[in-house]
Design a protein around this nucleic acid. Structure first.
Lengths: 257, 257
DNA sequence: GCGGCGAGTTCCGCTGAGCGGAACGGCGTT
DNA sequence: AACGCCGTTCCGCTCAGCGGAACTCGCCGC
């Protein structure tokens, strides 16, 4: 992050960006003016004008029957343009599928940008009770196996800086004590993978391991996740399969061990 | 489109959206302040403030060494949130791969939103001279096989409305005469697929056919494309393979013929 | 049918947020 | 060293955008 003075910004533009970000955080695909107004603390008139402006440029669609708003095609264009800059998702697809088949659980792929990470792909097993994750939603780096797998492989300076900030609890089991977290990160590095039982999402368990590229950077994290009740018994069998999958994808990305 | 009076918008927000859209249209992954300023006809100070505002909310990244800007993770979150609303891409993946293997050419998947369509997936063959397309870039509905395949299957009223508007030429071979285009659309519907030789992109040729869902709506278009020189000789053999692929995906999406 | 309610939409007076021109600082080239 | 170009910052000026409130419409209960 920049240490200089903060550059001049435009409040109206920031508020519009807040509106767009709200759509990635909401549970439903559509939102109404009042809902966004309450959520963001803006007047209905402002929200309405922002939505109308973004709609004029393709970022927002309006269903004129229900009078509710959803993301528009320019949003997709933006995301796919961003994805063009990375090809990890394509390379990982077959690895994820094999991993899901071998474990009979959900396999996910995450990437990190700054101090957040997000799921960018998943393969779910052909069974009724299973986990599915929300693609694109940003998560902090301390909560959940995939997040901690990234955090454990950042530089010591970056870890220090991250742990000096607020550690938000996503659920009852999220580790928010920096001392405990450091111990966990040490275990993760020694063991090769991170584990989480309800830290990011109650009822959900997962193990996750990093994927490296030709520069030995951690460019992605692969996880296997499922409902807590049955996952505890499966971890021992899943871990070596996960580690082999991450090695396979790492080799694909030019990692040489 | 709404026929009522245009709602109040915010100019600053529209200008910010123009900046974001510019990143989906540029050839490179990064852009500088002056380049965007020239492109959009805004002062450098305005562009800088817009970029700073969008950066504050995660939509833009700044490389502090090169002092150039690129899309940030919130852009990806937006696109993937949008993608969550559709699952065509997942369903089509194996169909695209088989199609590319059988034809030894690039297979693409497009979706349409309003009067634009975009590539949302592609599978390229294992050969050196091949076509690749840019995911996420919006194209008008009259230029190129994938676009025309959508246009040919819109309602007559929608086609009338579209053809009454300006038909921008993307290249020398783009059809911009509404009368000629109507004839072509009729052929497309009769033949079952659209063909293009350099209409969207010079040197590129493709054929494309629609994919239908359980409501018989055209929800996607699949194309096979390659360099013009060799494609002319291959069209006859590729067409039935393409049509079978679209029928297969359509059945997957609940189409019953 | 009527009235109330809640949602999205529109209007308009007011003022400070945002604009643009220009200066500044840094870097690369000659 | 001078120059050009880029991104960044500053500041005077004014109108773009804000918020409060009225409006419209659809739904629901009586």
């Amino acid at each position: 992050m920049s240490t200089g003075p903060k550059p001049q910004t435009i409040g109206a533009v920031e508020r519009a960006a807040d509106v767009l970000n709200a759509f990635t955080e909401l549970d439903g695909a559509t939102a109404g003016v009042t809902e966004l107004s309450d959520r963001l603390g803006l007047s209905k008139a402002v929200v309405h004008r922002i939505l109308a402006s973004l709609r004029a440029r393709g970022f927002i669609d309006l269903d004129e029957q229900t009078r509710r708003y959803s993301l528009g095609p320019a949003s997709l264009a933006l995301g796919l343009t961003y994805l063009q800059q990375i090809d990890v998702r394509d390379a990982a697809r077959s690895v994820l599928r094999d991993l899901s088949e071998q474990t009979n659980e959900t396999a996910t792929l995450s990437i990190r940008r700054g101090d957040v990470r997000m799921y960018v792909d998943q393969v779910t097993p052909a069974r009724e009770v299973k986990m599915t994750v929300q693609l694109g939603h940003p998560y902090p780096l301390h909560a959940g196996a995939s997040s901690k797998a990234f955090l454990a492989h950042l530089s010591a300076a970056h870890v220090d800086e991250y742990l000096a900030g607020p550690l938000e609890a996503l659920g009852e089991n999220t580790i928010t004590d920096p001392v405990l977290l450091r111990l966990d990160l040490g275990e993760i590095r020694k063991r090769g993978y991170a584990a989480s039982f309800g830290e990011r999402q109650e009822g959900a368990a997962s193990i996750a391991a990093p994927v490296s590229d030709h520069e030995n950077d951690t460019v992605a994290v692969i996880s296997v996740c499922g409902p807590v009740e049955r996952f505890r018994d499966e971890v021992g069998a899943i871990a070596p399969v996960l580690l082999e999958a991450t090695r396979e994808l790492s080799r694909k990305l030019g990692w040489e061990g």
